[in-house]
Write a protein that binds this DNA or RNA. Structure first.
Lengths: 337, 337
DNA sequence: AGTGAGCATTAAATCGTTATCTTTGAATCC
DNA sequence: GGATTCAAAGATAACGATTTAATGCTCACT
């Protein structure tokens, strides 16, 4: 178990001061007028013995950890997993590592996690926040940490945000259903005050209101136990036999909603038309395939990481806060009559 | 932007030495006979001002970072995403954070990532390794870092491993197909030398051999571009019209295999029976539902994190290397005649 | 009174860097 | 020829903790 080399060992071996080596390592050689000959000698030796500076010591000194904290609702949800994947790739390309965690939409857990990230001195945060963490995030921001929010916005937090046009997405989807002749359209959503869920609901409500149609809304408490969702959806469908179409507010609501629908022996689209918010492999491959409102995952993650990297690169200029709202696509499949 | 408190600030405010505070913080109060009165006073003040020790400084001094490096093939694959999720929960409960990355089954990328993790001083590693990183991992181990492998084993690496009975799983699955009267059974796998894929192939081969049946094997190069896989599978199925059943070696091969099958207009199970290795929401919900060899994800992640935490807690005792082979379940669904 | 033991606390070294000053010797200027 | 500038490198103080060895101080014992 050979111990790792330190900059001191290198300095001794080469009979040079640590200062000089540090300068060379950090690209200050020119500026500090270190002779070319010496620069060469040091670099050669370093490459030879494979010396790597201790990042902890470096971070302690500089205050930068080159780590980004990523907080999503649930990393095992394909939407977030895909976003995480793209953010990861991009971050690594730019020399940043990712510390991640799943919030479970749990306010207290999220507060703890924010504190953990803070203790770990992450340089920046990417957060899909639950409700109720406004103060914590504002504290982060005012202490100088760059924060980018995505998926759901917090109005009381003044920072960059990347999201989609939730209102327009459901509004269009419902109008599409209406144009196809559906008259009793249900909406299954989370009982959550998160901005994205509220906007989706409003889109649904507006579209119905314009056609003087009744609302049929089912709000389900957040749970990562599929059975909970299945039960709620089943009960809702049993109670509302008049429904001829239903829009699910998230992909996992839809996935488990499908289970409920199949359990009840309902046929899609004859007994019930279905649209899901967020795409999922299941929707493409089930038979019939399920119409979905698809988010531009690649652009979302691209914009998110770009905004954060920009902030990290030039922390000085207090640029205007950016709010990016991207468009979704209604991917029409066989689940509509 | 108030700057963070350091142990020094606390010491000054309380007129106590940093040493004392450090002892109290680290539970050495008794052992060092710090008076109860002082312990109380310090703890109260610390809670009041919300002081948290700087983990970087602490890590630098102690050499422990309380971070675990998690390397999977692709975090956006539900199998790995679910495992990652459970490992994350468990790790956080034990005071460890997760640094993660996707290897893409790319040997060079993985080597880089191992080095990154090393530079970041992660305390332990959980790795689903690609081929060709044996030396790097052995270097890690001999430098004292605990490593647990899972999903695929590296015979030349002598460390804990958690996997499943790949051979038995495919062997049983094929026998099940044979018992149901299938006679031309194909196997779609990765062209990979990874242990788990080799074992799965051997299970397939043995079962066929015992019944004097011909092999129909398609090896597909690793790619995270679905279209690549679809094309390969389509070509294979076109070429092998005699097939009446096919076993896919991984869940994403099966997911994209299904796309190919549907594109070709083949009916499951009448034209072709299908079994997938690893479960997936798609398989439960597609119509007909797809039979799958399901891995005990909860146990796998539980064992993995347990093994690692044990090693982290008692690094001294060089326990015997553990190899855990868990059983899978053949979840029979409608994709068989 | 002198020695030693026990108690409660602390000074100082250390971890591996980076960054701010100094230092040294040679060259240039007036 | 002494003062000044400059090139090249080094000494050293942070960064914020942990940990080893040391410091007074009281008390008991011979």
């Amino acid at each position: 178990m050979k111990k790792k080399l330190s900059i001191n060992d290198i300095a001794k071996s080469l009979n040079v001061s640590v200062t000089t080596i540090s300068f060379i390592l950090n690209g200050h050689a020119e500026e500090k007028r270190i002779s070319d000959e010496l620069v060469q000698r040091v670099q050669k030796y370093i490459a030879e013995v494979g010396y790597k500076p201790n990042s902890l010591a470096r971070s302690l000194r500089t205050g930068k950890s080159h780590t980004i904290g990523l907080m999503v609702e649930d990393i095992s949800n394909p939407f977030f997993a895909n976003i995480a994947r793209m953010i990861e790739d991009n971050a690594y390309k730019n020399g940043y590592k990712i510390l991640y965690c799943s919030t479970d939409n749990d306010t207290e857990k999220t507060k703890d996690l924010i504190q953990m990230f803070q203790e770990r001195h992450v340089d920046g945060y990417i957060i899909a926040p639950p409700e109720g963490v406004e103060t914590e995030i504002n504290t982060l921001i005012s202490s100088g940490s760059p924060v980018v929010l995505f998926d759901r916005n917090l109005p009381e937090v003044n920072t960059d945000y990347v999201g989609i046009d939730n209102y327009g997405s459901t509004y269009n989807a419902i109008n599409h259903l209406i144009s196809r002749g559906y008259r009793n359209i249900g909406f299954v959503t989370l009982s959550s005050l998160q901005s994205q869920m509220q906007e989706r609901m409003q889109g649904y409500e507006s579209a119905l209101a314009e056609h003087n149609m009744y609302q049929h809304i089912k709000e389900i408490p957040y749970s990562n136990e599929p059975d909970d969702i299945i039960k709620h959806v089943s009960a809702f469908l049993m109670r509302k036999k008049e429904l001829d179409a239903v829009l699910f507010g998230t992909n996992y609501l839809a996935v488990n909603g499908l289970r409920a629908i199949y359990n009840l022996g309902l046929k899609i689209p004859d007994d019930l038309a279905v649209i899901a918010f967020d795409d999922h492999d299941v929707f493409q491959l089930s038979n019939p395939s399920i119409t979905a409102i698809t988010q531009p995952i690649k652009e979302i993650s691209g914009e998110v990481i770009n905004l954060l990297l920009n902030k990290l690169k030039s922390p000085l200029k207090q640029k205007k806060v950016q709010t990016l709202i991207l468009d979704t696509t209604l991917q029409i499949r066989k689940s509509l009559r």
